[in-house]
Computed example of a mutant assay.
Amino acid sequence: MAENHTAGEGGRPTFNVVDHVSWTVPDLDAALAFYRDVLGATELYRMGPLDAADLPVGDDGRDWMASHVGVSGARLTLVMLKLSDNLNFQLVQYDKPSDRRQDVPRNCDRGGHHLAFKVDDVEAAAAWLAQHGCTPLEVIEIAEGPLAGKKNLYIQDPFGHQLELVD
């Protein structure tokens, strides 16, 4: 696909497609196994470990990780997955810095997020995921409005991230 660099209204650049979504996980190999074996993702490539201590410092004195990922002194490894035909999904494990947070934001917290999957059968998908370490909430049955007759379900992956199943 040819790239379109034509500026839009007011000089806004054209944003063509979403390239990928990225989540930080506590154990890259375990997360890779879950998303590959349980959800059917395909590994595209792996990079790292990349350590700020091994990369050149910029002219401004900041280390490479501070200049490029916004985390000084970082050490990370990443895997890019093809999660579906329309989504590449990157998993990243940071081993440094030591003061990195380990809690996952709730849906209502700043930075809160979830990844929604369209499925044929919400209950069947939830049962499959529950058998593989996920924690389901209760099914939302929509009786009225533009989504009447639909079902949704929030379910937590084994690493604390929220997923949503939508029929």
Rank of each mutant, 00 (worst) to 15 (best):
R100H: 03
A2R: 12
S22Q: 14
G145H: 07
E9A: 10
A2Y: 12
A125G: 12
L28W: 12
K82L: 09
V18T: 09
L28V: 09
R100D: 01
R46Y: 06
A30I: 08
L129V: 07
L44R: 14
E144S: 06
L115I: 13
D99V: 05
G111Q: 05
L165A: 10
D19I: 07
G11W: 07
V17H: 13
G149D: 06
V25Q: 09
G8E: 04
R110D: 04
H68G: 02
P97N: 02
L55W: 03
L55Q: 07
L147W: 02
A41F: 07
A52T: 09
A53F: 01
V38M: 04
A41H: 02
I140Y: 10
N88H: 13
Q131S: 11
A30F: 05
Y154Q: 10
G73F: 00
E123I: 00
R106A: 14
V166G: 07
P97K: 12
A143I: 06
N16P: 00
T77D: 04
G112I: 05
G61P: 06
G61Y: 12
R110H: 13
P136G: 00
W64S: 07
V79K: 03
Q131F: 04
D157F: 03
D95H: 10
S98L: 11
L147Y: 11
W23N: 08
K151N: 10
V104P: 13
A7H: 06
D95F: 01
W23Y: 15
D27A: 13
V139I: 14
A52P: 04
F34E: 03
V21C: 09
N152K: 15
T24S: 11
S72M: 00
A130V: 04
W23R: 08
A7W: 00
D103N: 15
W128Q: 13
A31L: 06
I155V: 09
L39E: 02
N86Y: 04
V166K: 15
R12T: 11
P49V: 07
M47R: 13
L32P: 00
I140T: 11
D63Q: 09
P146H: 09
L28C: 10
V79N: 03
T6L: 14
G10Y: 10
F15D: 01
K151G: 06
Y94M: 01
G61F: 04
C134E: 04
K118A: 12
T77G: 01
V92Y: 01
N16V: 11
R101A: 15
Y94A: 01
V69E: 01
A7P: 01
D27F: 05
E144M: 01
M47H: 10
L28E: 12
A33M: 08
R101C: 13
S22V: 12
Q90E: 15
N107A: 15
S72V: 03
N16T: 12
D27L: 05
A41E: 10
N4V: 11
V166Y: 14
L165N: 05
K150I: 01
T24Q: 13
Q156V: 09
V119Y: 06
A126V: 04
E43F: 03
Q93H: 08
K118V: 15
R36E: 14
A31K: 08
R46W: 00
S98F: 10
